[in-house]
Design a protein around this nucleic acid. Structure first.
Length: 226
DNA sequence: GACCAGGCACATC
DNA sequence: GATGTGCATGGT
């Protein structure tokens, strides 16, 4: 584990970093999460767009629609009209917006990588990230979810749950930038794909269980941490 | 009916 | 750079 060199929180007991301690507590409590809840890299990328500010069960319905119509592949999805795509992803909410965003991603995928996720995965992480962020509708969290879970790059994903948990335990203020949160993890925790995969998934699990907008702290494994 | 969910772009100051 | 708003379904 690396050492966090920032000034805003205390080094844990002078040896284990606080964020490593948090990881161990979450892993002991919840066990392995084995994310992403999707199979192919392409399915994961589409799921990452569909889950923007949306409950995962709604996303599952939308993905199920795509599968049932046999269009959960780059080519098939690209052939769909915007209206048809929108009607299929409707259960995921913001469906007109998300249909457009998926189409933008598909255009990008074909223009740069011939429609092949494997070709995208071969490029250097920083370059892919920059390109993903240029796509309309792909922001930092969606880009990093694709990098980590679809392309297996060691990039830490920051989401609302991560910010909430860290803010509530006084580790970093909620309003800090995405990059500030991400930098905290990158500098404190060794850059390992499987570790980052589990850690983010554990944050989501923790958030869903105990740290929603209205917190339910009884039984939370991080109770007492400050 | 109110509130919430694994964001993002855009307008405005 | 900070703050506010639209986008929308389905569960609690």
């Amino acid at each position: 584990m690396g050492v966090w060199s920032g000034g805003e929180h205390v080094r844990y007991n002078g040896k284990m970093h606080q964020l490593e301690h948090v990881y161990r507590m979450l892993f002991c409590f919840f066990g392995p999460q084995r994310w992403w809840p999707g199979k192919t890299p392409f399915e994961i990328a589409i799921g990452a767009i569909l889950t923007q500010n949306t409950n995962w069960t709604n996303v599952e319905r939308a993905i199920e629609n795509l599968k049932r119509h046999g269009v959960l592949s780059p080519k098939a999805l690209y052939r769909l009209s915007g209206a048809n795509l929108a009607s299929l992803v409707r259960p995921a909410g913001y469906y007109r917006v998300k249909a457009r965003r998926i189409r933008c991603f598909l255009e990008f995928l074909f223009r740069h990588y011939g429609g092949r996720m494997e070709d995208m995965a071969r490029e250097e992480t920083d370059i892919i990230r920059e390109k993903l962020l240029e796509i309309h509708g792909i922001g930092p969290e969606t880009a990093d979810s694709i990098l980590l879970y679809a392309l297996e790059k060691p990039v830490f994903v920051i989401d609302a749950y991560t910010r909430r948990v860290l803010a509530r335990h006084g580790i970093m203020a909620y309003e800090r930038s995405y990059e500030a949160f991400q930098q905290l993890f990158h500098s404190a925790i060794v850059r390992d794909v499987r570790l980052y995969n589990e850690y983010h998934a554990l944050f989501v699990r923790l958030g869903k269980t105990f740290c929603r907008a209205r917190p339910q702290c009884d039984g939370c494994p991080l109770r007492g941490l400050h």
